[in-house]
């Protein structure tokens, strides 16, 4: 598998480590509920199809990336720096 790191270019997937689904949003702050935290930590959609997921370029630039990949074919549709995605989420933009 080849992942096109926005900073380093296309690299073998062996350079990256994987975390998982990028959809869950951490319930931040003192008022977060245990139930919401449970769902964030444990529950996954786990779709067969397009999946936005977090990868870490461990042997490269150490960027976290949001990779949009089809879990049936492994085809990658988009790679974006996770920080950019997170910031636009914060701004309420669709991401």
């Amino acid at each position: 598998m080849r992942i096109r790191c926005p900073h380093c270019g296309e690299r073998d997937n062996g350079e990256f480590s994987y975390l998982g689904d990028a959809a869950p949003v951490r319930p931040d702050g003192p008022n977060a509920s245990a139930e919401a935290m449970h769902d964030y930590v444990y529950l996954r959609d786990n779709p067969a199809g397009l999946h936005r997921e977090l990868w870490y370029h461990a042997a490269g630039c150490r960027s976290w990336l949001v990779v949009t990949r089809d879990t049936r074919s492994h085809e990658i549709h988009e790679v974006a720096p996770a920080r950019d995605v997170a910031l636009s989420r914060r701004r309420g933009e669709v991401a």
Binding site: M1, D12, N13, G20, A48, H51, E53, T71, H74
Partner: peptide, 16 residues
């Protein structure tokens, strides 16, 4: 292999 997948195949990094 370490990533979500429904394809019944993996990649070379793990094989090696």
């Amino acid at each position: 292999d370490g990533y979500n997948s429904y394809a019944q195949r993996g990649n070379l990094a793990t094989i090696e």
